[in-house]
Design a protein around this nucleic acid. Structure first.
Lengths: 118, 118
DNA sequence: GTCATATGTCGAGAATAATCGACATATGAA
DNA sequence: TTCATATGTCGATTATTCTCGACATATGAC
């Protein structure tokens, strides 16, 4: 993960239609959603959405597979993780005391083991 | 943390000078760094940097305090945490199986307890 | 007060991004 | 082949963002 790749990913998510798109695709993991269904769900013209999907895709945040006439998009959670790790790396680099409390707050949201009681 | 606040924070970090600024301030926690020193360190004109600092500040990612003629900026790691939690909330909302592996990778970077062996 | 230092604000030009109509491609059905 | 559906691409317009010179403010020294 380079500085540039991180900026690309952050910029991709820093736009309301795209953030909504990404959230929608995350909510539909692991099945994914066809471009047309995203377009309909968000009330965005298909061509406008198409360019947003291309931007998210170029940033590596989503991927696509064609099934007959539809192209199904899926969120790439691994990429989201890469971005988050990159952002945290700076504060954790040699000084874990700084972001330890940050992590402590994160863990109850997503327990690393399968102690999911949410 | 609203959708809008998240977009504001993401957009603030999605620009190379601002990402560099934020990283520099994180590296200088908890002392902070004067605006002029950031300007010098990054080789950015003071007025250009000033507007970037204002944007980061407006997004809540940094804060400032005046000391005599200098204004010292500090990274607000809590806000970074808020952004990350917001992004993860969607994948963890009721479905922790999705981002549990994500968290598992995050934890070794920043141990939630003081088992810092890095 | 005057001067120097540190930072912020304004405004205009250049660059970049968002939107959407019109057209193009890809797949499958008849 | 022709038609309908699903999606992508192009191009022009509008909106937003980045940059930096010039000017303004704020603090402290003399």
């Amino acid at each position: 993960m380079t500085n540039e790749q991180t900026i690309l990913a952050l910029a991709s998510l820093a736009q309301s239609t795209r953030l909504d798109t990404f959230k929608l695709l995350v909510a539909h993991e692991p099945d994914g959603l066809a471009a047309g269904e995203v377009s309909k769900a968000l009330g965005v013209p298909h061509n406008t959405l198409s360019s947003h999907l291309a931007i998210l895709s170029h940033a590596g945040l989503i991927s696509s597979t064609r099934y007959s006439r539809s192209i199904v998009y899926r969120a790439n959670l691994g990429r989201l993780q890469d971005v988050i790790v990159y952002l945290l790396k700076d504060c954790c680099g040699g000084r874990s005391e700084i972001c330890a409390p940050l992590m402590a707050d994160l863990v109850p949201c997503c327990p690393p083991k399968e102690t999911a009681d949410v």
